[in-house]
Amino acid sequence: MFLVQRSLKLIPLIIIAMLFANCEWGSIGYNKGYKPDQPIPFSHKLHAGEYKMACVYCHTQVEVAKHSAVPSLNICMNCHQVVGIDKEPIKKLRQKYFDGETVNWVKVHMLPDHVKFNHKRHVHRFSTAEDRYPACKTCHGEIKQMDVVEQHSSLSMGWCVNCHREQEPKGPLNCSTCHQ
């Protein structure tokens, strides 16, 4: 009887172990590699890679605000007024635009509410006005080669702090730097 009770207590542990088994060790809960399908299969590989569009062409506010922000639909329409209008996904996009609606993209890089990250500061720190890609790449990986965007870094606190410790000039390490 005693043994049965004891082994019953182990069941949750076994379940947890099973659940973690298919994850990369050390990134539990961090969603590294998260690669969701999007309502419109937008390809960064095509736009940023092949066509060599600058990141800031669409992510216009990344240099001025803390959020990089997904572009509003009118930016897509700058080209897609004329380009690729016969393709199914673009038809869908145009329909949304002309109906005054928007696209509900699935968030890939998610920080919890108690973490405040400032894109502007990091973009200015890691790149020049001519080419922002080096800065983007540091955290988001080789976006230019991603057909479907996936989370490249763990975005864990340890990952952030390591960079603040190691990169010269060193980043601030106060708790209130990110938590406020």
Partner: peptide, 22 residues
């Protein structure tokens, strides 16, 4: 805790909703 932090699947899925014309 056991249920929420396991697996590489994010829960809940969050949406980003951009402007139509900002």
């Amino acid at each position: 805790i056991a249920l929420s932090s396991a697996a590489c699947v994010r829960r809940p899925v969050q949406k980003i909703i951009p402007y139509n014309k900002r």
